[in-house]
Amino acid sequence: MPRIDFYLLDSDGEEARLDTACRLVEKAWKQGLRSYLRADTTAEAQALDTRLWTFRKLSFVPHRLQQSGRDAPVLIGTTAVTDDTHPLLVNLGRALPEDFERYQRIVEIVDPDTERREASRVRYKIYRDRGYTPGTIKLK
């Protein structure tokens, strides 16, 4: 059963969401945990790919876009991962990942954007209705 946490941002905007996702997968990678960054669109996945190179000076997080077909400690994509080599899911998508039960840990990043916040409430309720107890972590 995965551990599920909703990270609530007080900063609005795409930069805060992407930077938070980058910091989380960087921390996970340094702890030896492989991650999958799930985006809504190919454009968002490409933005995450770029952001992982630039979000922090002198930072290096080995990553690849899922479509590249090559493995990396951090994968970025828009569809389900077909293997169990990435136990952490960082979900930036609006929908509930259909394969969410296969992950050991799920992080949902929520910013104050009205539509994204409402979509996160729906996901929270679905998790809860399926017997999970999602946690919430407020970030500043």
Rank of each mutant, 00 (worst) to 15 (best):
Q104D: 15
V74N: 09
A45E: 04
P62C: 05
D111E: 12
P112E: 04
G32M: 06
D12Y: 10
A119I: 05
P134S: 02
P87S: 13
T133W: 06
L24P: 03
K125V: 03
L139C: 06
Q66R: 12
C22T: 01
C22D: 10
V107I: 14
G13L: 10
R130T: 02
E115G: 08
G13I: 10
M1A: 14
V61N: 02
I109K: 09
E101F: 05
D49Q: 10
A43T: 14
G131M: 04
D12T: 12
V107N: 04
R34I: 02
G131R: 03
D83R: 13
A119H: 13
F55V: 06
R17C: 14
K57H: 09
K125C: 00
D83L: 06
V81C: 04
I4F: 09
S120P: 05
A80S: 14
T82V: 09
I76R: 01
S11G: 07
S120M: 01
P134H: 13
K27A: 09
T79Q: 15
P73Q: 11
C22H: 00
R105K: 15
A43I: 01
L89Q: 08
T42C: 02
W53C: 11
R38H: 14
C22L: 02
G135K: 11
D49K: 03
P87C: 02
R121C: 06
H86S: 00
L8M: 14
Q67G: 13
V122R: 15
V122S: 03
P134W: 05
A39W: 00
N91C: 12
Q46P: 00
G135V: 02
G32A: 14
P2F: 01
R94W: 10
R128A: 12
E118D: 15
V81T: 11
S68D: 15
Y7N: 09
Y103N: 07
D129Y: 02
I76H: 08
T50G: 11
A21N: 04
T20D: 10
E115W: 13
P2D: 03
F6E: 06
R51S: 06
Y103V: 00
P2T: 00
L139F: 07
E14F: 02
F60Q: 01
Q67R: 11
T79S: 15
W53G: 03
E98G: 13
R102L: 05
F55W: 08
V122C: 06
D83W: 05
L37D: 05
R105L: 00
I76C: 01
S35T: 09
K27V: 00
T133F: 05
V90R: 02
V25A: 10
V74R: 12
F60M: 12
E108I: 04
S59E: 07
S120K: 12
L48W: 02
T42Y: 03
T54I: 10
P97W: 05
R34M: 07
T41K: 06
F100M: 11
V110M: 09
D129C: 01
W29D: 01
F60C: 05
T136V: 13
H63L: 08
D83N: 15
V74F: 09
I106N: 00
L139E: 12
L65V: 09
R17G: 03
G131I: 00
A119Y: 02
A28C: 10
R117A: 14
A45G: 04
G93I: 05
R17F: 04
D71M: 08
P134L: 06
G32F: 06
E118P: 05
R17A: 07
K138S: 12
A95I: 11
T41C: 04
T41S: 15
Q46G: 07
T42F: 13
T54L: 15
